[in-house]
């Protein structure tokens, strides 16, 4: 008999579009955890591991972004969706808010705007301000997309995983993984938004107790971005996972380890700590 975890689905309407979310796990002394996925992601795509595993520990809420109306996507659109879900499910707060990749940028801005309703913040592979290195990668992506190149998903997969992870698999495995990526017009808008992120000023004003997680072999959002967040956010501590950008797949269990420890005891490490890696 499989352990089919009970969960509940909900929806809120934001700017005329419906935003769907999922809730699971017991209510206990841990602050509810709200999960925000990243570019081209979803609850199952980016939190397929973290969501069910954390739901054995505590209350977890995760949302799937909905495409807002309009030609361009702004960070504010996604922040509004996250805020609406938090307000619907945990109206009085506080929550622990976690974002991954572009979702980390969304989570950081949400934490800034919601103040003490976001007591704790986890930013995995996020960034403060888009830099030339990211713009260059994004530009190649844009060209492949405009050419309708069949190589685009392989390029994304190549950028997403660390060499060590890839080398445990075959080229056929990696190509199969690439084949599962779907690019929609909404993803186009997310990729455009990725070129225009600048939350440096807001990060200085984040009060939440924050865990920043950088990925050692990240070629999409290299770890110096996480170091910048670690510096910019006053009550931040930093952990590093030896993974590519796709840490939610590559090192899902290690990511779980940091999320689990932090949600259990957010003040285990004082602000400014570089949390030492477990040496198994």
């Amino acid at each position: 008999m499989l352990d089919n975890q009970p969960f509940r689905e909900g929806a809120v309407t934001v700017g005329g579009v419906s935003v769907r979310y999922r809730v699971a796990g017991p209510e206990n002394d841990r602050t509810p955890l709200v999960l925000v996925h990243g570019t081209a992601g979803s609850i199952d795509g980016h939190y397929g591991y973290i969501f069910p595993m954390m739901a054995y520990r505590q209350r977890v809420i995760a949302l799937d972004w909905s495409e807002p109306e309009g030609d361009a996507l702004e960070l504010a659109d996604l922040v509004a969706q996250v805020k609406a879900v938090i307000t619907a499910e945990v109206p009085e707060g506080p929550v622990t808010l976690m974002g991954y990749s572009l979702g980390a940028c969304v989570a950081a801005l949400t934490a800034y705007e919601m103040g003490d309703k976001v007591a704790n913040l986890i930013l995995a592979a996020g960034w403060l301000r888009t830099d030339t290195h990211q713009k260059m990668r994004n530009d190649v992506w844009r060209q492949l997309r405009d050419q309708d190149s069949a190589s685009i998903t392989q390029y994304m997969t190549f950028c997403a995983f660390s060499p060590a992870f890839m080398n445990m698999r075959t080229l056929t495995d990696m190509k199969a993984a690439a084949g599962m990526l779907k690019i929609t017009p909404f993803v186009d808008k997310q990729m455009d938004l990725n070129t225009r992120i600048d939350i440096a000023a807001e990060c200085e004003g984040i009060a939440a107790k924050t865990l920043v997680i950088g990925c050692t072999y990240d070629m999409m959002v290299p770890k110096h971005h996480s170091k910048q967040l670690f510096g910019a956010i006053e009550d931040a501590r930093y952990a590093e996972i030896p993974s590519g950008h796709a840490v939610v797949h590559e090192r899902a269990a290690e990511l779980f380890h940091y999320v689990d420890r932090f949600t259990r005891q957010p003040d285990e490490f004082p602000a400014g700590t570089i949390i030492p890696a477990q040496k198994p």
């Binding site: 499989l2 352990d3 089919n4 975890q5 397929g48 591991y49 069910p52 595993m53 054995y56 060590a164 445990m168 030896p242 090192r251 899902a252 269990a253 290690e254 380890h257 890696a277 477990q278 040496k279 198994p280």
Partner: peptide, 26 residues
């Protein structure tokens, strides 16, 4: 060796989701 240990350990840890009996991983 340290990196290898870390890699083997955390890929092993991933598989706990199977024992936890989560349909997708099982």
């Amino acid at each position: 060796v340290e990196d290898l240990r870390s890699e083997i350990f955390w890929s092993g840890e991933f598989n706990f989701a199977q024992r936890r009996n989560i349909p997708r991983f099982l």
